[in-house]
Design a binder for these strands. Structure first.
Length: 477
RNA sequence: GGCGCGGUGGCGAAGAGGCUAACGCCGCGGUCUGCAAAACCGCUACUCGCCGGUUCAAAUCCGGCCCGCGCCUCCA
């Protein structure tokens, strides 16, 4: 069974196999660190994190690199506003990035290279391009000469000749061609600068990604990902730089996620219609935000609205309930006598494996998380039904179901948080046991008023009680 | 203008030639329950933007049209 991914380069789904057996090398464009990340930034993080997790589930060793653009015009402007050094501002937003990404259960990348720490590599790359005749200096700047690279436009399917005709009038007359782009920018007064053969300055935006990707992943690496708005010019330029410099293919598969929209319009910092991840996470469960992002195929647009997030919270709760039910079943097993089994376990195990296959088939088909999720919900229902109709569940079936649910929902989709541990939760558990025991006594003497008051008051505190034939259980939320 | 994406039930969203159009949310009815919650069962699109065509068969292919959006400039 092979995996297929939609490659922007060819516009088709293609069978994916890594260049190096057993090992996948991938690069995802990271944020420019001048602000907290918004939901639009979060989508590629979650989408490509999920792809990475799935590749790992499939047994690949994944080398996952994501950059930080910690030096560019926006960071410099932000630093100016705040009256702080640019790198200090960047450092702070990098820390905040990890906080937000962590809330969304995004695994750490293998490496997070930063532009400011790769100036030497970037200068070397530009020098090489210059030597090969692909770059030219102009008054302290250095530009890439697009017409020297015949394949320009292949990724974004644009014809450079037509673009030239439609291009805006360039203010910058230093460029030979309006499509040429800066590899190196001369420093303005008071701007952070590094010495270079062309004078003090800083790297252009595109050269950092291709340089760092090549440095850590090598030419011909497997997957390069990012938002669809990066196709042109960013990724087109990366290809031009990398392939002109190295003379060989840069990345094999180009993957692009669709946008988040608000009222059908693209969410972006420049439009000002963006929602910060931290703000959304204060209103909804962070893992529900992750689920919301995975409920739609990664290439389709998602329109952001509260109803969708609310539905995601409910869906997540449904999955969580199944996990809880399974956990209780495990406890029952531990305490159970070797009563005769009342069957159904083998059937469940078979169904579980069937649904696991459906999940895998969905993910193999261009990382179709929406379809994979459907299999996961089906899995939850099968498990619930089994546990509800079986007084004495079979250990093998419960274990198999637990393992698959945790692998697919937890390891691959990243929807399950870690169990809380520590003194506070132990104390809470003890207190709840006590309260439930006392309430149980009230219930036994049919003192419903007391029993209901306890339940209502706990509800107000954010704790839900559920009375079942096997006793009372509780949960947060 | 060029390139690209999308229009499927109340909402979200899969499906891309042929099983009763997945799955989630909401709503309604039921089972269970002291009540509730959770869970489970059932109901909710004779129909997939519109009009033609191909085919034994189309939401899925072809043509035309309408509508919404994005990229072409920094943007995930």
């Amino acid at each position: 069974m092979s995996m297929y991914l939609h490659n922007t380069l060819t516009g088709r789904k293609e069978e994916f196999t890594p260049a190096e057996p057993g090992r996948v090398r991938m690069y995802v464009c990271g944020p420019t660190t001048y602000n907290y990340i918004h939901l639009g930034n979060a989508r590629p993080l979650v989408v490509f994190d999920t792809l990475r997790r799935y590749l790992e589930y499939r047994g690949y060793d994944v080398l996952y690199v994501q950059n930080f653009t910690d030096i560019d015009d926006k960071v410099i402007n932000r630093a100016r506003e705040e009256g702080l050094p640019a790198l200090q501002v960047a450092e702070r937003y990098i820390e905040e990035f990890f906080r937000d990404a962590g809330a969304l259960n995004v695994k750490r990348a293998s490496l997070y290279p930063r532009v400011s720490q790769h100036i030497e590599d970037i200068i070397a790359a530009i020098t090489a391009l210059e030597r090969r005749g692909f770059a030219y200096p102009a008054g302290g700047d250095v530009y890439f000469a697009v017409e020297k690279f015949p394949a320009y436009g292949r990724l974004s399917k644009r014809d450079p000749a037509e673009m030239r005709a439609g291009a805006r009038v360039e203010v910058n007359t230093a460029k030979r061609n309006p499509l040429d782009f800066a590899l190196w920018k001369a420093a303005g007064p008071g701007e952070p600068a590094w010495d270079s053969p062309w004078g003090p300055g800083r790297p252009g935006w595109h050269i950092e990604c291709s340089t760092m990707a090549l440095k850590y992943l090598g030419p011909g690496f497997d997957i390069h990902g990012g938002g669809a708005d990066l196709i042109f010019p960013h990724h087109e330029n990366e290809i031009a730089q990398a392939e002109a410099g190295a003379g060989g293919p840069f990345a094999r598969f180009w993957l692009h996620n669709g946008f988040i929209t608000v009222n059908q319009e693209k969410m972006s910092k420049s439009r000002g219609n963006f929602f910060l991840v931290r703000d959304i996470c204060s209103r909804f469960q962070p893992l529900a935000v992750r689920l919301f992002l995975l409920a739609t195929h990664y290439r389709s647009p998602i329109d952001f609205d509260d109803a969708g997030l609310q539905a995601a919270e409910k869906g997540l709760e449904r999955l969580e309930n199944t996990r809880r039910l399974l956990g209780e079943a495990c406890c029952r097993l531990a305490a159970a006598d070797p009563h005769p089994r009342d069957g159904g376990g083998t059937a469940l195990t078979g169904r579980v494996e069937e649904l696991r296959r459906e999940f895998v088939a969905a993910m193999d088909d261009d990382c179709n998380t929406a379809r994979a999720l459907a299999a996961l919900y089906d899995l939850a229902r099968e498990i619930n039904t089994y546990l509800a109709t079986t007084s004495c569940p079979e250990p093998g079936a419960v274990q198999a179901a637990t393992r698959i649910l945790e692998q697919l929902g937890g390891d691959v989709l990243g929807l399950f948080g870690r169990q809380e541990q520590g003194l506070d939760s132990a104390l809470l558990a003890g207190l709840m046991d006590l309260i439930i025991t006392i309430r149980q006594e009230a219930r036994q003497r049919q003192d419903w008023a007391t029993a209901d008051t306890i339940r209502d008051r706990l509800r107000e505190l954010g704790l839900t009680l559920e009375d079942t034939p096997r006793g009372t259980r509780w949960k947060k939320g």
